[in-house]
């Protein structure tokens, strides 16, 4: 099994300020590059992370980002989990609609980020907070795949 060298399989980062958003983006970029994601996929992942981390900051009043390297034996992937103890999302369906915004953005945060990854899950409860989990897998064929098995 290959693991991003010199990088723990999981990292937890605080989200409390603008500068933290930049730090989350950089960490996601590093993970994605080391896991073998192509440039376009890296860009999509970092952008999704930026959207979701900003949601955590703006709507959740800050929280945590957790980045985990995945390997299911066939392909490698990256899981990003954003957790806050904020007010939660009252109407998830509405929040997932393009153009819906309460934070002064373009209202593409959740719905847009979902389109940039392969798996997307929102767990929210009014008053208890929100956890958003996004997973992407390396889709291109790695050029040097060590012999099957």
């Amino acid at each position: 099994m290959m693991r991003p060298s010199g990088q723990a399989p999981a990292t937890s980062l605080p989200i409390g300020s603008d500068a933290d958003l930049a730090w989350v983006r950089q960490q996601v970029r590093q993970y994605a590059a080391q896991l073998g994601f192509g440039l376009v996929q890296q860009t999509k992942l970092v952008t999704a992370a930026s959207e979701l981390a900003r949601n955590t900051l703006v709507h959740g009043g800050g929280g945590q980002a957790e980045i985990t390297a995945l390997d299911d034996g066939r392909s490698r992937g990256l899981r990003m989990r954003f957790t806050d103890q904020g007010p939660g999302i009252r109407d998830l369906e509405l929040a997932m609609t393009d153009g819906y915004t309460t934070g002064g953005g373009l209202g593409l945060g959740l719905s847009g980020a979902k389109r940039l990854v392969h798996e997307f899950h929102v767990d929210t409860e009014p008053g208890r907070g929100t956890t958003v989990t996004a997973v992407a897998w390396v889709t291109q064929v790695p050029s040097s795949r060590p012999g099957a098995g």
Partner: peptide
């Protein structure tokens, strides 16, 4: 704008 950024923006819906 870089190609990867353009592709991502379109996918994002922007």
């Amino acid at each position: 704008m870089r190609p990867a950024v353009a592709i991502t923006l379109v996918e994002l819906g922007l």
